[in-house]
């Protein structure tokens, strides 16, 4: 007798990705470069976040042809993005055999209030979070993996740092609370009480939490690992750089040996220009993708 789609199988898949780098790709050729560089998975997209920003309009699930092309090109797991609350996009990706779905604020939300009820799916989901309230709500909806939201497509690490620090600091705070205080904390943060009690007991989230949204250099990847990330997503950072092959390999190595500064120094030499990047204050509130869900 066997069972598919259990929490252990879905969360376990993300555990296997730990210490690794997941790279955004838009075609088979980029997917192969990512796999060759040592990526643990690829995210198949129609456009990387920086281009989604530039293009404007409504960003939707990628054309299934692109996702299929990437699935056929590599043997590492393939992830794809569905719009927040878009049950059908998620079911289509699941039916195609995608290994992980990102219910992502990088795409234009299909539902401004409700997220997908992810525990009803056999395929596992990853979702973005900025704080413990968002993290626990996503886990309760069925997310098997989390990532910081950061601010995608900016090449600016500042928001990812803030979101990772916020979650870690809230977990530390939670550990010092008494049970009656946790009840009020649950109310104030819109977080499920029993899940908070579990996190308080274990001292960590029950799923892995990767860094995402603004990682542009090997040093950025190392920084996020030091702040407690289990691994990193690199979106626009790789294929918007001058030398994607070299950049991809350097980011993988910096993630494995995130506390070896001499090595990271070596890796960072002559990498060419990183993606240009954007300052947060130049974004209007509507341009901040992280505000698209709670």
């Amino acid at each position: 007798m066997s069972q598919t789609g259990t929490d252990r199988v879905k969360r376990g898949m993300a555990e296997m990705q730990k210490g690794g780098v997941i790279m955004d790709v838009v075609n088979a050729e980029q997917a192969k470069i990512a796999e060759e560089a040592g990526a643990v998975a690829v995210m198949a997209l129609e456009r990387v976040p920086a281009d989604i920003r530039a293009a404007g309009g409504v960003a939707r699930m990628a054309d299934p042809t692109i996702v299929e092309e990437v699935m056929n090109a590599v043997s590492i797991p393939v992830m794809a993005k569905a719009r927040i609350g878009h049950i059908t996009e998620a079911r289509v990706l699941e039916a195609m055999g995608v290994d992980y779905i990102d219910e992502s604020e990088v795409l234009t939300p299909a539902d401004e209030i409700y997220h997908i009820k992810k525990d009803e799916y056999t395929v596992p989901f990853v979702c973005g979070c900025r704080n413990l309230g968002e993290a626990t709500r996503r886990i309760r909806e069925g997310a098997s993996m989390l990532r910081t939201k950061g601010e995608p497509g900016t090449g600016n690490i500042v928001e990812a740092v803030s979101h990772m620090r916020q979650v870690q600091s809230q977990i530390r705070h939670l550990r010092g609370l008494s049970e009656d205080e946790v009840m009020v904390y649950a109310k104030d943060n819109g977080a499920p009480f029993d899940l908070l009690m579990e996190i308080r007991e274990e001292g960590r989230l029950p799923v892995v939490n990767f860094a995402a949204g603004g990682i542009a250099t090997p040093a950025d990847a190392s920084l996020m690992m030091q702040l407690g990330a289990d691994g990193v997503f690199v979106g626009s950072g790789i294929f918007k750089s001058n030398n994607p092959e070299k950049f991809a390999r350097a980011i993988v190595e910096a993630t494995t040996h995130y506390d070896d500064y001499k090595l990271i120094g070596e890796l960072s030499k002559g990498l060419g220009t990183a993606m240009k990047g954007m300052e947060m204050s130049t974004l209007t509130p509507e341009q901040r993708m992280q505000e698209r869900s709670q």
Binding site: M1, S2, Q3, T4, R8, V9, S75, G97
Partner: peptide
């Protein structure tokens, strides 16, 4: 490799 299929075919068994 990946002999039982992709992630959706992953399972637990005794």
């Amino acid at each position: 490799r990946n002999a039982f299929g992709r992630q959706r075919e992953s399972f637990e068994a005794h």
